[in-house]
């Protein structure tokens, strides 16, 4: 029973990461946009959904007690609205500036989450976020939530696949692979990039909303650049950027390794456990390097619709 709950927790988190990873795949894999500020869009989705669903509280704006099926799309929308100006400004110039601009927006969002107590509850965070199906009791509520998360990811996957195969997706790949040629056939690279960036951010926002509901609590502690931004990059690169199946597979596989090493480290005595966490950080950085060098196409290379 405990093991089942533990597995359900792991799988739910894997599903949430798969949503992040699918979003990043739309941006980087399909379009070649480097987003190192995933955290900002996750936070936008998580806090929006949290504020909309939580019960009213004296420590922050809201909550509004709205149902999740209204709040989650709103979370995705909030992330998209945040992405729009960031993308519009930095993608006018060149794609590597986006990487820097996204680091900036992530920092600003982190500061805002910490300091704007009226909105986010500051360091105390937002408590009492309802989780769908929790009324079913344990373990059924948890399993049902896992089912919902998986269904949401399946939906995102289908949407991502449809996007990749659509004329829009083909245009994105064309822009990524040869901007000049794409321009010559009448595409507007800047606009296509902004659209892809916003869509990917919406995926991350939805994932954030799922995360807030799962934790039932949202605070700045949950928004660490390493776990929310960097780990997703490792997942996508490991799984195979440009390939949605790779994005999901990478999320599950890397999350499994991450969770397993977390568990292993926790078995060590006090001081060593803390240090082991840093070793893990080092190894994840090294793993990324080795994948980039030895298997740049990831576990599954890009396949969809490309004739290369």
């Amino acid at each position: 029973m405990d093991a089942a709950l533990y597995a359900a927790t792991l799988l739910t988190l894997a599903a949430i990461y798969a949503a992040f990873s699918l979003g990043l795949n739309l941006q980087w894999g399909l379009t070649g946009l480097m987003n190192f500020g995933g955290l900002a869009f996750v936070a936008a989705g998580a806090y929006t959904a949290a504020l909309l669903t939580a019960a009213p509280s004296g420590t922050h704006v809201g909550g509004f007690g709205l149902p999740w099926w209204l709040a989650w799309p709103a979370g995705a929308l909030a992330a998209a609205l945040l992405a729009l100006p960031v993308g519009a400004v930095s993608l006018r110039v060149r794609t590597d500036y986006l990487a820097i601009a996204t680091i900036g927006i992530a920092e600003i969002v982190r500061l805002a989450v910490r300091n704007e107590d009226w909105l986010t509850g500051g360091p105390l965070g937002i408590t009492g976020i309802p989780r769908p199906f929790e009324g079913l009791g344990q373990p059924w509520g948890q399993l049902a939530y896992l089912g919902l998360a998986c269904a949401a990811v399946a939906g995102l996957y289908a949407l991502a696949e449809a996007t990749a195969r659509s004329p829009f997706g083909r245009a994105l790949r064309a822009v990524r692979d040869d901007e000049e040629a794409a321009k010559a056939v009448g595409k507007n690279p800047a606009r296509l990039r902004v659209q892809a960036f916003v869509l990917g951010a919406a995926f991350m926002g939805l994932g954030g909303a799922m995360m807030a509901a799962f934790f039932k609590f949202m605070s700045p502690e949950a928004l660490e650049p390493v776990t929310v931004t960097f780990l997703v990059w490792v997942m996508l690169i490991a799984g195979g950027s440009g390939n949605n199946r790779g994005a999901v597979l990478g999320a599950v596989a890397v999350w499994a390794v991450w969770a397993a090493t977390d568990w292993l480290a926790a078995q060590l005595p006090g001081e060593l456990a803390t240090r082991a966490a840093y070793v893990r950080l080092f190894l994840i950085g090294l793993a990324l390097q080795l994948i980039l060098i030895a298997r740049p196409q990831g576990l599954i290379g890009e396949r969809i619709g490309t004739q290369r």
Partner: peptide, 18 residues
């Protein structure tokens, strides 16, 4: 250049972890 950028992100993480 993007791949080098991602790689340098990994390098940074390794240094920080150290």
């Amino acid at each position: 250049p993007a791949v080098l950028l991602i790689s340098s992100f990994g390098t940074g993480l390794m240094i920080r972890a150290g």
